[in-house]
């Protein structure tokens, strides 16, 4: 439900806190870069999450919805200036009441609007492999490939917001892990 640049969970927060703490220990010539990327004024690219690409099948068809009862939404931005990206294809797949992540009717694509927002309504999410989560992918030409796996704070949540920042494809080799 929460999150600005990305959905924040406790572990990410802890890791972030540890990283900031660790950065203080670094020599001063390294610190500015780390500090810069952790401030919210500049938009650093969102990183692919572990397990994000699991059960990914490329080119999910464009859909109106994947059922009703749960809404996944967010804003897609460009790294650097943070400009909202319109007409970007966002692929989403998840385990729902109707079946697992591989079920055809549980995966689809939506395009972002002029303001960079995407929104997809899905059947209620159920936990798969022990955590209620959804998968979000950007896997087209213009920007670096990105796989997200945000976890719902509760399996009874009715929505999740996942904003993310894409890096230019040239500045970053596509990763699929």
């Amino acid at each position: 439900m929460s999150g600005k640049i990305i959905v924040v969970d406790r572990r990410a927060l802890l890791a972030g806190a540890a990283a900031v703490g660790g950065a203080r220990l670094l020599p001063s010539f390294v610190t500015p870069a780390v500090a810069q990327s952790s401030t919210s004024s500049s938009f650093s690219p969102t990183e692919t999450m572990p397990g994000g690409s699991n059960n990914y099948i490329a080119n999910a068809p464009l859909v109106q919805n994947l059922g009703t009862g749960f809404v996944a939404s967010g804003v897609v931005r460009r790294a650097g200036d943070g400009a909202p990206l319109s007409n970007v294809r966002v692929q989403i797949w998840a385990a729902t009441e109707r079946g697992g992540e591989r079920v055809t009717s549980n995966r689809g694509s939506v395009m972002t609007g002029p303001d960079g927002t995407y929104r997809l309504e899905i059947s209620p999410i159920v936990p798969q492999f022990g955590q209620p989560h959804i998968h979000i992918a950007y896997d087209d030409r213009d920007f670096a490939t990105l796989f997200l796996r945000p976890v719902l704070s509760s399996r009874h949540d009715k929505s999740i917001t996942a904003d993310f920042v894409l890096a230019l494809a040239s500045s970053n080799e596509p990763r699929r892990s």
């Binding site: 572990r11 572990p50 397990g51 059960n55 697992g100 992540e101 798969q128 492999f129 955590q131 976890v151």
Partner: peptide, 22 residues
């Protein structure tokens, strides 16, 4: 059976690179 169902998730788990703490 879980491997047959979702090989990537189980491979991640066995190799300790899964995002799930359990």
């Amino acid at each position: 059976a879980l491997y047959a169902y979702s090989p990537e998730d189980i491979t991640d788990a066995l190799l300790l690179v899964a995002p799930t703490p359990f």
